[in-house]
Design a protein around this nucleic acid. Sequence first.
RNA 1: GUGACCGUAGCUCAGUCGGUAGAGUCCCAGAUUGUGAUUCUGGUUGUCGCGGGUUCGAGCCCCGUCGGUCACCCCA
Length: 431
Amino acid sequence: MAHRFQSVRGFNDVLPPDSALWQHLHAVAARCFSAYGYGEIRLPLVEHTALFARSIGEVTDIVEKEMFTFQDREGDSLTLRPEGTASCVRAGLEHGLLHNQQQRFWYAGPMFRHERPQAGRYRQFHQLGVEAYGMAGPDIDVEVIAMSARLLRALGIAGVRLEINSLGSSETRARYRTALIAYLERHVDALDPDSQRRLQRNPLRVLDAKAPQTQDVLRAAPTLLDALDAESRAHFDALRQGLEDMGIPYTVNPHLVRGLDYYGRTVFEWITDQLGAQGTVCAGGRYDGLVEQLGGAPTPAVGWASGVERLILLMKAQGVTAPEAAPHAYLCALGEAAQRQAHRLAEHLRDVLPTLRLVVNAGGGKLAAQLKRADRSGARLALILGEAELAAANIQVKSLRATPAGATSSQQQTLTWTELPARLGGLLDSP
RNA sequence: GUGACCGUAGCUCAGUCGGUAGAGUCCCAGAUUGUGAUUCUGGUUGUCGCGGGUUCGAGCCCCGUCGGUCACCCCA
């Protein structure tokens, strides 16, 4: 036998029946986003590498060691997108959609990061995200958070909690950063090694360190919330009021920070402890500086992204199932003439009943074997077309599954071809 | 990037002290049967992830590599 390939590490196939759950998730999400007037934006998977360096931040782990970057044939440095926001802003600017306008977008698709795979973390993973531009007020922050809450609810996901924080203005952050560094340097020996490293590179990230000894040090550290400027404070207070008005429970986590440099003021995360170490299901915040940083006019912006694999894991953990996708009927044909007629009949039935799911047995075989396949397909009915039925222009209809009324599984009847559509129509899902 | 565990039939797994591979399931054929359940009989399925090494001999020991799982790190 020839050599068999394995998939590339961290790149996964999605197979039936899981793919049905993915379809369900996307259908629910699309309905949810359009309910708020958000339009779908479809973005390329590849961008110029510099776009991500400039938006996500040069000294972030994502840019420094996690991007799939390559040279194309002209020698340009290109990168498989590690997230969606940078592309969204680039596209908005490129097509003049962000200039003095309000825009609401959503997107979905694969992202790529070269990390070691583990539960809920893959090298090709998928995100759903929303972005809103040109609206500075806290009410739009509330809107996008409400939308995320509605999406989670619509997907049947429970047991997630919302945490929020404010990173303040960039001036606030710079001032706070200095104060935090000063404090941490006095306790540097008590920090875990990772946090000592972070202290040099990205001090705010020390705040969400897991190591207990670092948590101890942080208890007496200055907090971002105490350092907030007056405007950010008012924005944050209004956000909290808005969430309360909407009845969305949340907790303020003063240690919540973001791994991407472009965030300021509002940040939030939906967190679960049902997924092991990768507990963040949805995360986002305000990024008022990014559009200008990418060459546009100063434009307020807010958005979030959610990890599809993590949502799917949660849905499965909670027993959420996709709508029924098994065929309604399975057509068994005995003999060559009947097989030919079976395919013609099936096409006719699909014309008459556009939502019918009908499988035609292929390749012949004994009736017993065909019925076995019919049963395994999950079909409710088996349709049997043999030589006798062919001659009489009728068909045998056999129940494979008990109906809700509790009928036995051996029910069988003979119908003419013209009676068949009405019988099958009775099986179709009500809209 | 660091660490731990794992990879044997389509699937779930056994395989002792190193002696050229086994069960259940699935699938196929037949018997029974009420044309698909059940029961019975018989049968097919393997480069033991891949490549080296040690050995008379490797699924088993050693090295490398690819893939999986989990944690760190990072993050959705």
